[in-house]
Amino acid sequence: MTNQTKSQFIAVASITSELSAVMVVAKEISLAAANAKAIAFRAGDKAKGFQPITDFINELAKETIELVTNINIYALVLYRLTVNEFQKTVAYNKFELASKMAGDAVYAKSMQEPVEHAKLSMQDCQRQFKRDVSQLLGQLEAVMHHARAARVIAANSRIEASQAGEYLQSLQAVAESVDKAAHTIHDNVQRCRIALSIYRNS
């Protein structure tokens, strides 16, 4: 296995692991939203400004989960593509070797077609991988966007919480956990993007 193939396998595997962490955190946000909703309900008028925010947080968490689920399916496709590319590359190298070893054999030339064919399918795989990576990067960008939005909401929540009287502390805690979660998502997704960006279609 060449280093290029190895790092491609690692990049694809790292997406899956980073994303499973994102999934956990997104579920935490969704839980925090439910929690906040209950508190805001109890706080009544004192947390009026907080109520629409909890819905928004919940929505955002749900969308993030959905996005990540889709990306995971994509990552699996990418993994299969990597396996395929690896097999095609092995075949191409072996065919070339066979062709070289055949030397002046009577039918040595007949190996040209399989060699050419293997080369084309290997290149096909490489192109398709680049194309799919570009699309995946686009989807990851969408998750980043959600994470940034969540941080803005967290900031707003803090302001709203400050007017919630005795509920200040618990609402602030909600805002804190949303902010932290959004931060984690942002970092993880960023790592995925860096791992993949070298394969992007230039």
Binding site: F95, A102, Y107, S110
Partner: peptide
């Protein structure tokens, strides 16, 4: 053994 075997067979038959 694939490559040496394929190369050896090419002394007797074309791939197709």
């Amino acid at each position: 053994l694939f490559a040496p075997m394929m190369a050896a067979v090419l002394h007797h038959a074309p791939v197709d």
